[in-house]
């Protein structure tokens, strides 16, 4: 009895919402329940949460200024006061690692946002309009997908000149093809579905049909893909920084820190070890989170 009443209250509380949103909310809670069952995914989410907090307020956690140097401490090994030791110009590595999460998050989320925007727009256009628009865009997407991103990135970053903004924009504009492909396929099937046909019959504008009815339903796979993609982007960023084409000094970036440490692996290996571990853990966290999300949002995969 009590059980029933509670759910009645709950229904009442959300009754102010439109039917569409209500459907989504309950879908969300169902997805969350499914997600919770996948432990590694939860662990990933927790780690990401910590990183986000680090990225938002690094000064609260970093024990020292990440840029301040004490050159006399060049390469000094870990100690209690400086658990990760010092880098080659005498900066505290732990503080740089914590501040580095800000760059990783900025690049990971920023570039993904750009890629998703471009990819969804192009994929939706191709899927919705079909015909020659679709075949041109699809050929373009195929080519871009097959083209090694790192090569494109290197050419662009070398020519535009490396900076944080370049890295974000360049990664964003070269990694959208997979989103376009997924969205196109979804839109292709969605546009023939009853609720879309109904909306069209009732005279809704094309834009409204696309943005209100089709895209929201195609977003599930995009979110999963985006989550799984962030890890790859963080690796790309660090590879670019490693090659000297990424974020500029003295801004602490994990990839650049590994690059710094490369010359000193014989004498001060700690410079390169810590950021490498951080990159691995971060990418791992996003991938596990993405795996969990996929299982939760896309039950077909889970059989």
């Amino acid at each position: 009895m009590a059980e029933v009443r509670r759910s009645a209250v709950a229904t009442e509380r959300i009754s102010g919402l439109t039917g569409f949103e209500r459907e989504r909310r309950s879908e969300f809670s169902r997805a969350w329940r499914r997600f919770k069952r996948y432990r590694p995914g939860l662990a990933g989410l927790a780690f990401i949460g910590v990183l986000v907090v680090f990225a938002l307020v690094p000064s609260l956690f970093a024990p020292y200024d990440p840029i301040a140097q004490d050159t006399a401490m060049r390469g000094a090994p870990p100690s209690w006061a400086h658990p990760f030791g010092f880098d080659h110009v005498g900066r505290d590595i732990l503080s740089r690692i914590i501040w580095g999460s800000r760059i990783a998050m900025l690049v990971g989320l920023g570039a993904t946002a750009i890629a998703v925007t471009i990819g969804v727009t192009i994929g939706a256009t191709a899927g919705f309009f079909g015909g020659w628009v679709d075949s041109i865009l699809s050929r373009f997407v195929d080519t871009l997908l097959a083209f090694p991103t790192l090569v494109l990135l290197i050419v662009l970053a070398a020519i535009i000149g490396p900076s944080l903004l370049t890295v974000i924009v360049v990664i964003g504009t070269t990694t959208w093809a997979s989103y376009a492909r997924v969205v196109r396929a979804d839109v292709l099937s969605l546009r023939e579905r009853e609720f879309v046909l109904a909306a069209r019959a009732s005279g809704a504008s094309q834009a409204r049909v696309i943005f209100r009815h089709i895209l929201p339903n195609a977003m599930g796979p995009v979110i999963v893909l985006a989550t799984l993609g962030i890890g790859g982007i963080i690796i790309l960023e660090s590879a670019l920084s490693f090659l000297g084409l990424g974020v500029q000094p003295p801004t602490p970036s994990w990839g650049a820190m590994i690059s710094d440490g490369r010359a000193f692996i014989r004498h001060y290996p700690q410079i390169a070890i810590a950021p490498g571990v951080m990159i691995t853990l971060t990418v791992l966290a996003f991938n596990l989170f993405g795996d969990g999300l996929r299982d939760a949002l896309d039950p077909r995969q889970r059989e």
Binding site: S238, A239, F242, G255, R262, I265, A272, G276, L281, V283
Partner: peptide, 15 residues
């Protein structure tokens, strides 16, 4: 495999 995807290849190279 999940770990293998997450490891930056230049870093394992160094290690």
């Amino acid at each position: 495999a999940t770990l293998g995807v997450a490891l930056p290849n230049f870093w394992i190279g160094l290690m």
